[in-house]
Amino acid sequence: MVGASEERELERLEKQVEEGGGGVVEYLSLVRKLKVRRSNIVAKHGLQLLNQASARSKLGSDLWTVYEQVAIACMDCHALDSAKKCINALDSKFPDSMRVGRLEGMWYEAKGSWQKAEKVYSNLLSENPSDTVAHKRRIAMAKAQGNMTVAVEGLNKYLETFMADYDAWRELADIYTSLQMYKQAGFCFEELILSQPTNALYHLGYAELLYTMGGIDNLRTARKYYASTIELSGGKNMRALYGVCLCGAAINQARGRGRTEEESQELVSLAASVLVKKYKEKASSKAGLVSSILDKYKQLAVA
């Protein structure tokens, strides 16, 4: 997971690297550690680094990991020749490695040769049927070809075996959301929340899903999850604060005239006051605009 301090460090190093101030090795290592997708910068500076023989020798045992990282970044940026050279370097060092085999499959994917990629993954899986990454690449391949039904089926089958793989649950939730199958996506989010109950972002994702689904019960549950996001993120998550305000207004509208019980408006006004305070601190010119919008939500929530 990427924390606030890691994000700041990443931004600092990225700026330094882009301005030519050195620190490329540290940047590449941080990108690997945080698993962020910065293919453009990684490919640009990684290739420059690998082109210098002295820099290569300084990398020591990290050299091969950097080759792999740069190869994937090059594929992502469609620099297939450079990616092939990285893979060849890895292949000559580790001739029978499955990890290099997967890279070859990915190279065929980037090239658009789906059948060849499929053949590579099938061979890898026949050698080692529990190779999770090869399974995932096959699913990603179906997704890349726009074949979402196959991707969903593949992911469901994969999750029957590897049900503790939370990245796969997250991917399934994303795919279901993109297909507007919100009920199924909700199930995936429930699994994710069960796996990591203290991660505010899963609570936020589930809340947004429920808000999108609509209906008074879903909206009330969404408000609860927005509130738990605020609690878990120390009140610093702006999306959750906005979410609480929107839910308050939407619940009141959904109830219409047939109101039976009084909804508490304290949460909405508290979230709104925090939002205005934050805007005053960070972007005081927008504070007036935000407070007028929030006043409208508050009126809707009370009316």
Binding site: M1, V2, G3, A4, S5, E6, E7, L34, K35, V36, R37, I72, M75, D76, H78, M106, E109, A110, G112, T132, V133, K136, R137, I139, A140, K143, A144, Q145, D167, A168, R170, E171, D174, T198, N199, A200, L201, E231, L232, S233, G234, K236, N237
Partner: peptide, 23 residues
Amino acid sequence: ILSDAKENRVTMFPANLDFMVFN
């Protein structure tokens, strides 16, 4: 007690690199 609260809260997910799509 809340591991994500205070200073170093989780701000974003890592990219799901295993399911990366080049297309």
